[in-house]
Every structure is written in structure tokens, then in C-alpha cells.
Simulated assay, not measured.
Amino acid sequence: MPKQKTHSGAKKRFRITGSGKVVKQGAGMRHHLEYKSSRVTRRQNQDVVLPTQDAKVIKKLLGK
């Protein structure tokens, strides 16, 4: 049986913490950063822990 490959898009967007939670970067940090206040960009740049229902799918894509 062939090896399962890691999903290339998922490995760029998600990571798994030491305790097994799946985290991603907050939304809204890609465009128009010049016009957003520093307060907004700091808040959006924080990591977000995914809910367990979504984390189950992401872990499968990451091969865990």
C-alpha cells in the first residue's frame, strides 16, 4: 500500500501543538495592512485554536 502524502496547502496553514491541538494564524493578515491600526493587526496575528471537529479533518490532511 502506498504512503499517505501530506496535504501541501494544509502544512503551510496549520501546525500541531505539543498537546495535540491544531492552530492557525488569525484571519485578515494578508491584505491592506497599511490601513489597519496596529491594535487590529496585533489581534489578528495571534494564533487561533481550531475546534475539535475541524481539527480532526486537518490532522488527517497532515498525516497524524
Rank of each mutant, 00 (worst) to 15 (best):
M1Y: 11
M1W: 14
M1D: 06
P2I: 01
K3W: 04
K3F: 09
Q4H: 10
Q4W: 06
Q4I: 11
Q4R: 11
Q4A: 14
K5C: 05
K5Y: 11
H7N: 10
H7P: 00
S8L: 13
G9D: 04
G9R: 07
G9S: 11
G9Q: 11
A10E: 00
K11A: 13
K12C: 03
K12L: 12
K12F: 00
R13C: 11
R13P: 04
F14H: 08
R15C: 08
R15T: 04
R15L: 01
I16L: 07
I16P: 01
T17H: 02
G18H: 07
S19H: 04
G20E: 08
G20F: 04
G20A: 09
G20W: 08
G20Y: 04
K21A: 13
K21S: 09
K21P: 03
V22I: 05
V23G: 00
V23Q: 12
K24N: 10
K24R: 15
Q25R: 13
G26C: 04
G26R: 06
G26Y: 02
G26I: 01
A27E: 06
A27V: 02
A27K: 14
A27R: 10
A27T: 06
G28R: 00
G28I: 08
G28M: 05
M29E: 05
M29I: 07
M29S: 04
M29L: 09
R30W: 11
R30A: 12
R30L: 12
R30H: 13
H31S: 10
H31M: 13
H31P: 05
H32P: 01
H32M: 10
L33V: 08
L33A: 07
E34C: 14
E34T: 14
Y35F: 15
K36L: 15
K36M: 10
K36D: 05
K36N: 09
K36I: 08
S37G: 15
S37Y: 07
S37D: 09
S37A: 11
S38Q: 14
S38E: 15
S38F: 12
S38I: 10
S38G: 14
S38C: 12
R39V: 08
R39I: 06
R39W: 03
R39D: 06
R39G: 01
R39A: 10
R39F: 02
V40D: 02
V40M: 05
T41C: 13
T41D: 09
R42D: 02
R42S: 04
R42K: 09
R42F: 00
R43F: 03
N45A: 15
Q46S: 09
Q46R: 14
Q46K: 15
D47N: 08
V48I: 14
V48K: 08
V49W: 00
L50R: 10
L50Y: 08
L50V: 02
L50W: 06
P51Q: 07
P51C: 05
T52H: 13
T52A: 15
T52L: 15
Q53G: 06
Q53K: 15
D54W: 07
D54G: 01
A55D: 01
V57I: 13
K59F: 01
K59L: 05
K59G: 07
K60S: 05
K60E: 08
L62T: 02
L62S: 01
G63K: 07
K64L: 11
K64S: 05
K64I: 12
K64A: 10
